[in-house]
Design a protein around this nucleic acid. Structure first.
Length: 367
DNA sequence: GACTAATTCAACG
DNA sequence: CGTTGAATTAGTC
């Protein structure tokens, strides 16, 4: 069943079975979407590192995934105590090869190779960089390439040679290879994030005094600089940030070992997750429901940002989130918990509410 | 569907 | 590592 006690990490479990990850196939109609693995997003499988016994990683991965699920609320429909874990958790849907874990596929970088190289070079104090350092900078800033083959390095070299915007600037002092720099005719554009190739080539030619068939300067639209969301600074952004944090940690399950070694920390975190901490952010973004009398709600914002917040909330707080539904269908229950004086009290009310809920709508049991 | 830009593969010194 | 040619793919109009 799905009571919070079952989900918490009871003392360090002895992992002796061949595969400690119990996998039960979910009912077919379960079409839940985990924010860890959004619909349509591809995933890649990575082998567990060999440093520790496999079982250690597997258990740690479960612990970590459950914890992150909880922390990622409210965008994560698995973050509430209603949801059983791990049998409903998408990473374990279907066949589960216990030698691997799944991580979300990194999106391809927005910038072209020219842009990546230029940013790398410009990030160095001397505005010049050796090939191997360019590789490293790109690896450091775009983990997408960590899971790629060696082909992209070839492409980097290819682009360095091909494009006149990159010039050699002396040989490396000790090691081998040249320093690569940016043609002076292009540094200004590149600093502004304008990495258009054609424009760069034209400027180089003009710089060398050749005649240029002054092609219209901006046939293509100016580059779009990634800007923070318009709702930056709102509590939604904070939720978004937490969610991203959770996603990021999720990609590094090795670190789950730490939590595995400190199960009490996990327990403590579970204990601190009270209804108030879970619900309050949700309420602040649904001001149209005035029945909630929460302090943070009292400050009336102007309509425009509020409308934006509501829109965002509807985007990131999927309707199928059972927690969402409880909040909307049983507002008086939520109100009671929220207005309780202490977190302990609200937690107790939560337990009662959960118990009643289980009675009225019995969940299907696991075998 | 043509046309261009960008990426990828790969041979070579 | 650096050049270069060629094939393939992605994007636009």
């Amino acid at each position: 069943m799905g009571s919070p006690e079952d989900l918490s990490i009871s003392s360090n479990p002895p992992v002796t079975t061949a595969c400690p990850v119990s996998v039960s196939s979910p009912p077919q109609e379960e079409k839940m979407v985990s924010p860890m693995f959004p619909a349509g997003s591809s995933t890649t499988t990575v082998p567990f590192p060999a440093q520790y016994p496999l079982q250690v990683y597997q258990q740690a991965y479960l612990n970590r995934a459950r914890l992150l699920s909880t922390l990622a609320y409210p965008t994560n429909p698995y973050a509430n105590p209603f949801v059983r874990f791990p049998s409903f958790y998408p990473p374990f849907f279907g066949a589960f090869d216990s030698r691997f874990y799944r991580v979300p596929e990194e999106p391809k970088p927005q910038h072209s190779y020219i842009g990546l190289i230029a940013m790398a070079i410009l990030s160095s104090p001397d505005k010049k960089m050796v090939l191997s350092d360019i590789y490293q900078w790109i690896l450091d800033h775009y983990s997408y390439f960590r899971t790629r083959g060696p082909g992209w390095r070839n492409s980097i070299r290819h682009n360095l040679s091909l494009n006149d915007c990159f010039i050699k600037s002396g040989r490396s002092a000790n090691g081998k290879g040249h320093y690569w720099a940016i043609h002076p005719a292009n540094v200004e554009d590149f600093k502004k994030g304008d990495f258009r190739r054609r424009k760069a080539q034209r400027k180089v030619r003009k710089h060398m005094g050749l005649d240029v068939p002054d092609d219209e300067d901006s046939p293509s639209p100016p580059p779009q600089v990634p800007s923070p969301p318009c709702w930056a600074g709102t509590e939604i952004l904070d939720l978004h940030r937490r969610h991203q944090e959770a996603l990021d940690l999720h990609r590094r399950p090795h670190e789950a070992l730490d939590l595995h070694r400190r199960p009490h920390d996990v327990l403590d975190l579970h204990r601190r997750l009270t209804p108030a901490t879970l619900i309050r952010p949700l309420l602040t973004v649904t001001p149209k429901k005035r029945q909630f009398d929460v302090d943070s709600l009292l400050a009336p914002d102007d309509d425009e940002p509020q409308a934006k917040k509501i829109q965002i909330a509807e985007e990131i707080g999927p309707r199928e989130n059972p927690f969402f539904q409880v909040v909307q269908e049983k507002p008086e229950e939520m109100q009671k918990m929220l207005s309780s004086p202490s977190e302990e009290e609200s937690a107790r009310l939560w337990e009662e509410f959960m118990a009643r809920n289980r009675e009225s709508s019995p969940q299907e049991d696991k075998q």
